[in-house]
C-alpha cells in the first residue's frame, strides 16, 4: 500500500499492473500448534467443517457468471451443500473465476484474492479462465491463469453447466478431505 498516498492527498498514485501481478504470495504458517493439529484426527474434523461450508465470492464475469447465478438458485441450489454466495471477500472461502480475465481486471482480481482469508481455494470455471477459450488470441485477455492463482479445480466447458459447477465443488470437497488441496499441501 506504500505507493498509494493517504487521506487528503490530491493524487493517488497507482501501482503498475505488472508489479501487482507479480506480488508473491508466501505462506507462513510456522506455528507449532498448527503443525501439531495437522498430525491429529482433529484436522479431519476441521476439514469436514471446511469442506461443508464453502462460501464463494459473488463475482460474475461472463457467461459462466450467469451459470454461477443459476447454480445458486432454486433449480440447482448449492445451499444444499452448504455453499452460499458472499459478497465480501473477507467472508469467502472460494473464488470462482467465472470467465475471461482481462488485463484490466487482473489487478482487481488479484487484490480480491489477496484480501480473502486463509484457507482459500480457487475454482477455474469455463474454458476462458483455464486457457483463454474462444478468446485465447485476444489482445486483452490473460490465458495462463495458473501462473497467478493457485488453482485447485478446473471446470471445462463454455460455459459449464450448473451440474458441472456442483461437480467441481464436490471434487474440491474430496480434495480437502484427502488433504490434497493446495493450502494443505503447502505449495501455493
Amino acid at each position: 500500500m506504500g505507493e498509494v498516498e493517504g487521506a487528503g492527498s490530491e493524487t493517488a498514485k497507482v501501482r503498475p499492473i505488472q508489479k501487482i501481478i507479480d506480488a508473491h504470495v508466501t505462506f507462513t504458517t510456522t506455528s507449532a500448534i498448527h503443525d501439531f493439529l495437522k498430525k491429529t484426527p482433529l484436522q479431519d474434523l476441521i476439514n469436514w467443517g471446511r469442506k461443508n461450508s464453502l462460501w464463494f465470492l459473488t463475482q460474475p464475469m461472463g457467461c459462466c457468471g450467469i451459470e454461477m447465478i443459476c447454480t445458486g438458485a432454486p433449480h440447482y441450489d448449492t445451499d444444499r451443500f452448504g455453499i452460499i454466495p458472499r459478497c465480501s471477500p473477507r467472508q469467502a472461502d472460494v473464488m470462482i473465476i467465472s470467465g475471461y480475465i482481462t488485463k484490466k481486471y487482473m489487478p482487481a482480481l488479484k487484490l480480491l484474492w489477496d484480501q480473502m482469508p486463509e484457507p482459500k481455494w480457487v475454482i477455474c470455471m469455463g474454458d476462458c479462465s483455464i486457457s483463454g477459450g474462444p478468446f485465447w488470441e485476444s489482445y486483452s485477455t490473460i490465458i495462463n491463469t495458473e501462473k497467478y492463482f493457485p488453482v485447485d479445480i478446473y471446470i471445462p466447458g463454455c460455459p459449464p453447466r450448473p451440474e458441472q459447477l456442483i461437480q467441481g465443488f464436490v471434487e474440491l470437497q474430496k480434495k480437502i478431505t484427502a488433504k490434497q488441496d493446495r493450502t494443505q499441501k503447502g505449495d501455493t
Binding site: 464475469m61 461472463g62 470467465g99 475471461y100 482481462t102 484490466k104 481486471y105 482487481a108 474462444p134 478468446f135 488470441e137 485476444s138 489482445y139 486483452s140 485477455t141
Partner: peptide, 21 residues
C-alpha cells in the same frame, strides 16, 4: 472495459461460419 475481449478484432480473423460462436 473490465471484460473487454476484443470481439470485433477476433471476428476479422475468423471465417464467416467461425464468427457465429
Amino acid at each position: 472495459g473490465f471484460i473487454h475481449k476484443g470481439i470485433e478484432k477476433i471476428l476479422e480473423n475468423r471465417t464467416y461460419l467461425q464468427c457465429i460462436p
